[in-house]
Design a protein around this nucleic acid. Structure first.
Lengths: 220, 220
DNA sequence: TATAAAAGTTAGGTTAGACTAACAAATTTA
DNA sequence: TAAATTTGTTAGTCTAACCTAACTTTTATA
C-alpha cells in the first residue's frame, strides 16, 4: 500500500508522540497541534487511516497505531535517520541543517534505495543526533542517551553525537581528536570541579564538566 | 518561488519536448500525452503557469517557456542527472534502475543539498546515460553522443556511458578494464569486420564493432 | 452531582489538480 | 474552398487535505 506524504507524516508523528507520552494515549488535538493543523483536519485524516487499518480509536479520541501502522512509522524514522547520517557524514551538512532536508528525503519511495544507502553508510546504528536507527525490521538499540559526564571512571564509551553545535565547540572537539564513533576511555575525574581525564587514541586529555555534558556517548 | 512537484514536472517535460521538437512548438495535447494526462488538465495547469510567468502561449495552444521557466527546468534536469550519477556510482544501482528513483529525488528542495552532492560526486559532466549535467547556472556541454565505433583511429576519447546494460556486457566491459570516465585511445581498425584495436590504461585490446557500438564516449 | 472547561466531531467551504463531455478553432484534404 | 479531422478550450465533477464555525461528548471542578 503506497501512502501519500501526508498520511506518512501523521503516522510518524503519532508514533513519536506515543513514545514520548509513555502510557498516555495520544489525542486528536495533541496530534493536530504537533502537525500544526486544525483538530478537524487531524480528525478527518485519522478516520481515513482507520479505514486503512493503520490506526484505531481507543476510547473516544485516543489514537493508537496498529502493528502495520507502527511498522510504517518505524520505516520512516529509519529513512529519516539514515538520510541525516548521509547528509552529515558525506555531504558536510552541519548538525542543525540535516533535519529539514531529511524531512523531505524520508518520503522517497524505494526499498532498494534505502538498503543501498544503509550499506553505503556502513550500517550505522545512530544518527548524528545520537538517536538509534531502526533496522529493516524496525528493531533498534533502545539506548538511553548518556553524556560523557555520566560515564563512570574506568569504563569505555563511544561518541555518537554532540549536543552543542557551535563552531567553537566543534573545533575544540576535533582538536582533541574526537569524531563520530571515537572510542573514549574515562580515566578519572577531579572531585573539585568534576573535570574528567579521558583517553582518546592513546593520548590522555583533561576536559571540563561543561565539555563532557555536551558529548553524547553509548557504552561499549 | 517554491513550485509544487506537479508544476515542476510540467516545466521539465515542456523543456525536454521543446528540445526534442527543435523548431516545432509544443502543443497542449503533446504535452498532456507525454505526462499521461488529459488535455484539459494540461490546459488548466498551463494557464496557471502563464499567470506565474513561467510559460507563454505562442499562437493558439503552442507553448514556450520563459527564461525563468527554462532556468527552473534546467535545474530540475541538473538535479535529476546528479541523483542518477549518485545512485549509479555510489549505491550500485544499475543502468535502468536509476531513472525512476531520480524522478522522485529531483523534487527535493535544497540548494545546499545539490551543491554538496555535486561536490561529493566530483563535479561530473555526464550522467550514467551519457547525458550532460547542467551546472548551477544551467550551462552544459552540448556534446553529440558518440559511440566508440564512430571515433576515428588515432584519437582519444573518454567513456561516459554504455548503451547495453546486460550483465554479460557489463562484465565484459569491466574485464577489459573499462569503467566510467576511462580514457580510450583508438589504435586502428580492421577493414574486414570493423573490429577496433584500443588502448586502455596502457594495454591494447581488440573489440568487435558490436561492442564498440554499445560504448558512449566524448572526445577529449 | 451539576456545571464549566476541555477535547473531539460534524458540517460546510476552499484549493490544487485531476477527469469527462461538449464545444470551438485550426489545419488538412478532397 | 468546403468538409473532415485534428487540436485546443470550457464547463462541470471528483478527491485529498486543508480550513472555520458550530455542536457534542468527556473530564474536571465548585
Amino acid at each position: 500500500m503506497e501512502l501519500t506524504k501526508n498520511e506518512e507524516d501523521y503516522l510518524k508523528v503519532l508514533f513519536m508522540l506515543s513514545v514520548e507520552a509513555g502510557n498516555d494515549m495520544v489525542g486528536t488535538n495533541h496530534l493536530a497541534a504537533d502537525l500544526g493543523l486544525a483538530p478537524a483536519s487531524a480528525n478527518g485524516m485519522l478516520k481515513k487511516l482507520t479505514e486503512k487499518n493503520l490506526v484505531y480509536n481507543e476510547k473516544h479520541g485516543k489514537w493508537v497505531l496498529t502493528d502495520q501502522g507502527k511498522s510504517i512509522a518505524l520505516q520512516l524514522i529509519r529513512k529519516h535517520r539514515l538520510w541525516e547520517t548521509f547528509l552529515y557524514e558525506k555531504l558536510e551538512f552541519t548538525w542543525d541543517e540535516v533535519h529539514e532536508v531529511a524531512e523531505q528525503l524520508e518520503h522517497i519511495h524505494s526499498k532498494k534505495l534505502i538498503e543501498k544507502l544503509d550499506k553505503f553508510l556502513g550500517y550505522p546504528e545512530f544518527d548524528p543526533h545520537g538517536d538509534p536507527i531502526p533496522n529493516e525490521k524496525g528493531k533498534y538499540k533502545a539506548v538511553r542517551k548518556l553524556t560523557l559526564s555520566e560515564v563512570p571512571s574506568g569504563s569505555t564509551c563511544k561518541l555518537i553525537a554532540v549536543k552543542d553545535s557551535s563552531a567553537a565547540f566543534l573545533q575544540y572537539v576535533s582538536e582533541i581528536g574526537l569524531g563520530i564513533r571515537s572510542q573514549i576511555k574515562v580515566i578519572g575525574r577531579q572531585a573539585f570541579d568534576n573535570s574528567i581525564r579521558i583517553e582518546v587514541d592513546g593520548t590522555e586529555v583533561q576536559v571540563s564538566e561543561k565539555f563532557a555534558m555536551n558529548i553524547f556517548v553509548v557504552t561499549v
